[in-house]
Every structure is written in C-alpha cells, then in structure tokens.
Write a protein that binds this DNA or RNA. Structure first.
Lengths: 354, 354
DNA sequence: GCAACTTTGGCAACCGGTTGACAAGCGGTT
DNA sequence: AACCGCTTGTCAACCGGTTGCCAAAGTTGC
C-alpha cells in the first residue's frame, strides 16, 4: 500500500475521513479530486456520475479539479459496485471465415456509437469451446452476441438468464435473434435462373449441423417448386474455397445447368475449378453464391450471389443487445433482415453445350 | 444491499468476521465458499490463487466447496486489487480494410492460447480518435497493440509509459514493433519484373501520411536502381478498390509496362479498370500488389503480390505484448517478418503493344 | 418567526477479491 | 520448561468507485 510522503502528512487534511492518499502515482482517483476540491469522495463520485445531485457551484469546483489532475474514471472500479463495464462480447464460430468480418464490423461500429467496447472471441466451430468462452465472457461483459453459434438452444437460453444475449443466423426460442430472410433472396435467384431457361438447379450445402444451411436448402426447394424447376441437393461440403473446388465433379455429374452454393467461398472455389477444367461460366453453367462476402466481386466473371446484409446483422444485433441493456423489460425479438439477389456475371442464360 | 434472510440469521456464523451474506443470488463469491468450507475468505482467496500457501487438507475442502457452489471467479473484483484483467487491446486504423483481418486473426488466436481476451476497436483513420480510444482502452486492458497507427510517435511512447504497447507496420523509437521487411519482397518483385524485360515501373503510393507507403516507395526505388530499371512515382491514391480504378489513366499515361501498388485493393481496382478498358493484363501491363489479402487470388488473372505475413504480424505482436506483461524487464524489440513475392498471373513478360 | 419541506454534502458500508502483518500451533533442541 | 524456526489460518486494510441514509442548511408558506 502506498503511504503519504512526509511533507504531505504535515498538511492537515480538510476531511479526516479521506484515508486513500496518493503520492507519486500516475493515475489520479476521486480521492485526489476530493482533496483538491475540498469535498468528500462521495460528492466527487456523484458530481461525475450524477451531476444533478450536487449543486452547480460544487460541480464546477469538482470538474475543474478533475481537469487539473487529468482524471480518468477507472472502469474496473466502477464496474464492481455497478456491475456494468460498457463492454459487449461477440463470439464468432470461425474467425477465418470472411462472413464474420462484416458482422464484426457492424457490431463494432454500432457499439462505438453507443459508447460500448467490443470484446471478440471465437469458438473454432466447437460447441464446448463456445460455451466455455461464453461463460467466461459473461463474467465481465454487459451482454453477448453469438454469431452462428454451435451450442445447444438450452445452453443459449441459460446464458440469457444471466445477461442479455442476441443470436445471429439462428433462431432460438426465448432469445432475441437476427436472422437473414433467406427466402426472399433465394426466391429472386431461382426466379432469375428459371427466367434464363434453367430447368435443374443443384444445391451445395454447408456443414451438416449448420442451421442456416438447412434453412437455405429449404428455401431453394420451396422456390424451385414454385418456379417448376428441379432442385437437387449434393452431399455437405466444407464451406471453404477448397471445399468448392472439391465439389466441382459432383456438380457437373448432377447434370444441372445452374448451381447454388451454401456460401460464396464454395462458389468461388467451384468457379475456379470449373474454369481450370475448361468449363465456361456462365455459358455452360451458372453459379450463384451466398452472402456477398468481401472479394466476391473480384472474380471473373464477378460472382452472382444472394447478399446477406452481414454488416446490418452485426449492427442490428448490437443495437438490440444495447437496447436490452438500457431497457431490461424489452421483449424477446426476432429480427429479420432482407437478403437480395446481387446479379453479376457468373449467372446467365442456359446455352447449348458444345 | 442484500440482507440475510430471516432463517439464515438464526444460524450462528462459525466466523463472525464474515459480513457479506448472500441469499438468492446467482453467482457465489469467496464469502459463500468461506461459509461452506468453514474458513476465512482470505484463506479461500489464497487457496484459489496461491494454492501452495494453504495446507493440502484446507485446499481440498475449499476446492470441494467451490465445485459444489459452481463458483466462478469475478475477473472485475480480481482486477481491482491486482490491476490485471487478462485482456489486451487491438486498435486497427480501418476495420473495413481487409489487411487487418489477418492481423486480428493472428492476435486473437495467440491471445486465446495465452488465456487472454481480445478487445477490438478502430480509429477510423483519425489520430485524435485513435489516441482517445487508446487512452480509454488503457484503463482496462493489460496491454495494447496498435496496427498501422496514425498518432504521433511521442503519443505512442507516452502510452507505452503506462502499460506495454506493441506497434505493427511502423517503427517507433522506444517501443516494440513488428514490421514487415518490405525490401525483401519488393526486391524479389522488381527482380522478377526486370527479368521479364520491364524497363519502367510505376509505383502507386497510399495515404500521404502513411509510414509504410513511404517505406515501400523507398524499397521500390532501391530495388529498381539495383536492377537498372526506371522507377516512377504517381500521386498518392486512396488505398481502396475505387482508388485503384481512378488511377488507371495515370498509370497508362506513365508509359510504364509494370505497375506496383501500395496495396492489393489498389491493384485489384486497377486490374478491373484496365480490363474494362480492353487492356490485357499481363500482356500489355504487369500488375503487382502488396499484402496478399483475402481475395487477392480470386481475380482473373490471380494477383501477383508481395505477401506481408499479416497473420504472423498479429501473432508476433500479441506474443511480444504478452511476453512484456509476463516479464516487464524485457527490452524493446524491433521484430521483422519477411515479405515474399507471390507470383500469380497478373505479372509476366513485357510484350509489344498492339 | 416558525414549521414544514427540499436540497445537498458527508458518513460509512459496500461491490468481490487480494495481501501484509500477525499470531497460534507444531516439532525440535537445549 | 523455554526457546527457535517454520507453517498456516485469521485479521483487517485495501483496490476505486457507488449509494442508502442522515443531518445540516436553505427555501417556502403561513
């Protein structure tokens, strides 16, 4: 513990209840301000966090002292009695997956506007790691966003019992969620392909346990049924560029003239592999990806994709979470964000095979 | 304040010094463990954080009680007396810039391995915002990484006086840094272009106040001098895809047959614009980018680039920072990571113009 | 002028954990 | 029996801020 320097102890304290003396210390505290301003530390605390609770005269004296000392509140000390840190957590399934970059960006930007700091972690696609990480985060952050979570619904609900939780890309009963309305974008895509003369569309799904992959396949089927187009589903593929390359032969073997993939990475890998095999895109086969990730328009031809507004998802989730923190009585909400077809060069009219 | 329930106050406390009673509370504390184990809270604290300081028998009793109560340490309460939160901050200049994705990934992965949590923020390319954000972060995190910082050197040194700071992509005297050795990769690139017959190389620089942009131009000049190739420098361009598009005419007007850009985004935008103008890459002009960002190999032809190992930068910076936290006496270090030429299809032999 | 009411600054307990100082207990030695 | 050295559990102050309660001071109405 630091002790008062000899010369300071010679100066009688205006209020003997101030015990926490600070000498030769980098960061001033409200006790230092109290001494300079000649008031009680509790008055300083009120002046800084509840200015209306002290008189204007006292407030001015305290603010001047704080400025003079270059005081900065210690968020840790404040968090202990209030239970609030002005931080929120975000756990993503796989930090190498670029779909999460926009989600992180949207959440971070929204948090900053609301004076909250983002704490980031990943689960490495493991439900166990995810739950452990979430429990640890919950001890410090004010609320938590789970992006494409892998843990069970009941684990998510248990977390939400403690502090506010918002889930992205998955619907969990009893918890606020932000979910892209995949039906809209997929319907637009299937309609576009049908209009271009395609009779058979093959779908390349993502991870077997992915909730979103199942939703996307459901939507493809539904849209194809409506447009009287045949829908074929391949085996699940790794949601990576390499996964897309590996699925090229199966895509061709399906006899389809259009392919829709679980995500853009699969689409890009597929595009590259087909082109390497001399197959012309979109002349011989149309490709439609999903999400509209960063780099999706770098390809030649640029990738047609169903755009998930990932940045909006992140921003909406952060907004909802911070609203829940402000008004704890807010009801559970399922927020849907619209997907839309982004028509680029990788899809077109079906042409006769050469 | 919570009060003891009536039935609990009827039961005499084994140790009357325990005042903090907890009833109907979600999260148990060391006071609860103390009561169950029949020891002093300070003994519980020592058992959990310095197990060798209590007897094996007492340790077992306390651990059993902690497990029974499903106790989880409150990092905020621990941080107040120790000053440690097991978190580290990372501020990036622009969260929309994909070069930071790998840096974030590298730092986050390393932090997780060392049981540290990443706190992320961005400065939106503003030196003022950056310094304000850094100062705020410094009140809670144990250390800070600044990626491509925009603030002054002396502000960075002032921050480092308080807690450990590591800088990426810039050399700051008196502060540990992680810097890509741009000379190596750029030399390889210039050598490759010279070997392909190019006699004039034009460089498209990035932001005027970017330290790294100046270093890259220095390296291009030096390498060109060695290879007896003419080096030409254009005006600074916005380091975005659009910035690359806008600089296409100036690139062509320079008469160079090879262009090196400040970063991949510039190169990709330039590539797209030249191709849209009917100029064949690399037949009519070779393009070399920098960084090898995500998506750099999506283009057709795939982009030749000088690869900055950004993930390694992030990991090295995090490793250095956490080492500094573990051993405060560690000296300042300048860590260089090697760049290397990644030869793809966007650069090749100079051909006669048609 | 006084009673009733409001304002406002101080007191001290508290948030949950850490840790220096102290003392009791134990075994060994003289 | 007294002393020494060591172990180990307790006491209580502390980290920096918050806040319920209280009392003194100020204001208002009669």
């Amino acid at each position: 513990m630091s002790e008062p320097s000899p010369h300071e102890s010679d100066v009688p304290e205006p209020h003997s209840s101030i015990k926490r003396l600070r000498v030769d210390k980098a960061n001033p505290t409200i006790y230092d301000i109290a001494r300079v301003a000649g008031v009680n530390p509790s008055t300083v605390s009120r002046a800084l966090s509840k200015p209306g609770r002290v008189s204007a005269k006292t407030l001015k004296i305290i603010e001047d002292a704080a400025a003079e000392l270059n005081y900065q509140v210690n968020p840790i000390a404040r968090a202990l009695p209030t239970g609030r840190t002005n931080t929120f957590g975000l756990i993503v399934a796989d930090i190498t997956n670029p779909t999460f970059f926009d989600i992180i960006r949207g959440a971070q930007t929204t948090g900053t506007l609301r004076d909250y700091t983002l704490v980031l972690a990943e689960s490495a696609e493991s439900a166990v790691t995810e739950l452990t990480t979430a429990r640890r985060m919950m001890t410090t952050v004010d609320g938590l966003i789970l992006a494409s979570p892998r843990m069970d619904d009941h684990d998510i609900r248990a977390l939400a019992q403690d502090k506010p939780v918002v889930v992205i890309n998955r619907e969990v009963e009893g918890v606020s969620c932000v979910i892209p309305d995949v039906a809209k974008g997929i319907s637009e895509a299937v309609r576009s392909l049908a209009g271009n003369g395609h009779k058979r569309i093959v779908f390349v799904p993502g991870p077997p346990q992915s909730w979103m992959s199942a939703r996307r396949w459901d939507a493809v089927q539904s849209a194809c049924e409506w447009s009287r187009v045949e829908a074929v589903r391949l085996e699940s593929a790794k949601p990576t560029v390499d996964g897309g390359r590996r699925v090229a032969r199966a895509v061709l073997a399906s006899g389809a003239t259009a392919v829709m993939t679980y995500n853009d990475l699969l689409a890009i890998g597929l595009l590259q592999e087909l082109q390497a095999g001399g197959i012309s895109v979109p002349d011989e086969i149309s490709i439609v990806g999903f999400d509209d990730i960063f780099g999706a328009d770098f390809t030649t031809p640029p990738l047609t994709t169903v755009r998930s507004p990932l940045g909006e998802c992140g921003a909406a989730a952060a907004t909802r979470l911070l609203d829940l923190l402000t008004d704890a009585g807010s009801p559970i909400e399922i927020m849907q964000v619209e997907t839309e077809l982004v028509l680029r060069g990788s899809s077109g009219k079906v042409l006769a095979k050469s």
